[in-house]
Design a protein around this nucleic acid. Sequence first.
DNA 1: CGAGCGCTTGACCGGCGTCAACACCCGTGG
DNA 2: CCACGGGTGTTGACGCCGGTCAAGCGCTCG
Lengths: 234, 234
Amino acid sequence: MIPIHKDSQWQGISDCKNCGIREMALFADLQDEDFSLIHTPIDTLKFEASEIVYSENQHAGYLFTIRHGAIKLVRNASDGRERIVRVLRTSDVFGLEALLKAQYETEAIALETTELCRIPLEVIHQLSQQTPRLHQRLMERWHKALKDADDWIASINFGSARQRVAQMILKLRLTHTPDITALYSRQDMGAMSDLKLETVSREMSRWTQLGVIQPLDKKGRMYKIMDEETLLNA
Amino acid sequence: MIPIHKDSQWQGISDCKNCGIREMALFADLQDEDFSLIHTPIDTLKFEASEIVYSENQHAGYLFTIRHGAIKLVRNASDGRERIVRVLRTSDVFGLEALLKAQYETEAIALETTELCRIPLEVIHQLSQQTPRLHQRLMERWHKALKDADDWIASINFGSARQRVAQMILKLRLTHTPDITALYSRQDMGAMSDLKLETVSREMSRWTQLGVIQPLDKKGRMYKIMDEETLLNA
DNA sequence: CGAGCGCTTGACCGGCGTCAACACCCGTGG
DNA sequence: CCACGGGTGTTGACGCCGGTCAAGCGCTCG
């Protein structure tokens, strides 16, 4: 089995109590005394693009939350095709299935340089036995994951290639600056929407041509959205 | 807002303690004393095919579990296209988002004659405050819903029309007799897999032609699966 | 500066959508 | 009892969208 982390990935032990993204995180409304219940260290790990966080069927012992970066959840078909089932970004939680099963159900791979908090299952179990405050937060996470999954089906996996690419552009906007969109390789975008990379490329060129989006780099990853309306009604 | 149920749908008050499907249900491991905490009646409702259980954005006050039948969860695009994000069957729970939001996020419609238990939110809240036993069960439901959603993307919404229809045939097998598959209208099958109904029909004809499946009725709904292997490797 | 990777673009073709005709099942009413 | 009509499934003809194969370009990094 693939080791869960190499030394080069280890970034230190997380200080949850004073964490900058604590409001968004799983432990948002824990009290000071609750933190004293955490006996197992929560590590901070760093992954470079395309590094594997865990693989399908690997033993599941941790939950993860994203400090910054992005993760793709992947299912590999028996014939080798790769399908991206969901993309998670800053403050999202993944690996929730660890709470119920001994194995992860998808593969998790970094899409860019990504920093994670790795929370051992024991920590969750200790906390949830002794304080009820975690349950609500966990349920919020399940809810968000499920809603994201349903959105994924209803937006970027629905309709013509043109519509799918338009929806991807909209979906991958930066949270704090919604007129900028941060995309991924054409290959990955294809695996998200069940299109071939050439088709994605063509539709991207078309939107650029029409002035609906405007490239901000030369790698085809960052674009400024000029005409949101047109993308919505594609 | 659409009323949550008409008198004609009302089938009586559920007796959860002695429910036949209790092992599969949310209340599987409640003790006798826990049932005494249920003060609000849990109704049993019956819906005919194409009747609406709830609509998108309708006020969410209940969780549902399926006693028997099938429900489609639908998102309606602004241009009128209908997308089925998931299909639920006997013993599945839906409307979980009611636990966190005041509105349902999808529309729920009966695919066939379906009997539901309708559980008021108060019941869940009462029980989960006073007994911890429900939490685990609820989490199992979130987990199953999320896994189903991911499977949906990775199987029946992935690859060629041929592969999608093959996956649908496999996915919609009867739980107790897995060599029989119970399908829906070509229209609905199309909305599940993002294909046109004619394409679904053609691929169905092709599998029948090849002897991979064999019709059991004249409406194109029930088939016997003769060659599972071929469907899997389509 | 050259190798290699990812993106783009073109030419071609096949799969799927579109439009339409027809078959079949069933319920209704003559 | 049969005639009729609507709803659903099937099948055909045709055209276009998106997949395939291939060439070329621009970055980036040795």
